[in-house]
């Protein structure tokens, strides 16, 4: 393996965030902007979950018959997984509200161009 899984995820997360910011700033179509924003959120989530990675670790479920020391030494860090779940839910609801507003604006203005709708 040339680069390990954690480093790969961190790099992917960074790329997602950069692409997302680029899309959110420079693309004019509102839906494309929102897709870019979803990229930023996903990048942050991927980053967060990569923090819990442990090389060669096991799932943090204490199965019957498992030695206590073995579990303590090999289980992955569970906190980021719990956090990222919450974060995904928040991201989804934000996205839903945003798309809802875009629908209303499209009905009112008949356009999806940010430069027309969200200009001065």
């Amino acid at each position: 393996m040339i680069i390990d899984t954690q480093l790969a995820s961190l790099l992917t997360a960074g790329a997602l965030i950069v692409i997302g910011i680029f899309a959110a700033v420079f693309l004019d179509n509102l839906i494309k902007k929102v897709i870019g924003l979803a990229f930023i959120g996903d990048g942050a989530n991927l980053f967060l979950i990569a923090m819990g990675y442990k090389p060669g670790g096991i799932v943090y479920i204490y199965l019957p018959g498992m030695a206590r020391d073995f579990f303590a030494q090999n289980a992955a860090y569970p906190l980021p997984f719990a956090l990222v779940l919450t974060s995904i839910v928040i991201g989804a609801s934000t996205m839903a509200v945003m798309l809802g507003i875009i629908m209303v604006l499209y009905k009112k203005r008949g356009s999806l161009k940010a430069s027309e709708i969200l200009g001065e």
């Binding site: 965030i17 910011i21 959110a24 509102l30 902007k33 929102v34 924003l37 930023i40 959120g41 990048g43 942050a44 989530n45 980053f47 967060l48 923090m51 906190l79 980021p80 956090l83 974060s87 991201g91 934000t94 509200v97 945003m98 507003i101 875009i102 209303v104 604006l105 009112k108 709708i117 969200l118």
Partner: peptide, 28 residues
């Protein structure tokens, strides 16, 4: 109001994940 709310959300959706990123770094 809809236009302003959407602008606020777009700016917020750029910024909040970055705040989360800062928290993730602290966690890391």
């Amino acid at each position: 109001n809809y236009e302003t709310a959407l602008k606020y959300m777009i700016l917020g959706s750029i910024t909040s994940p970055l705040l989360l990123l800062g928290i993730a770094l602290l966690l890391g």
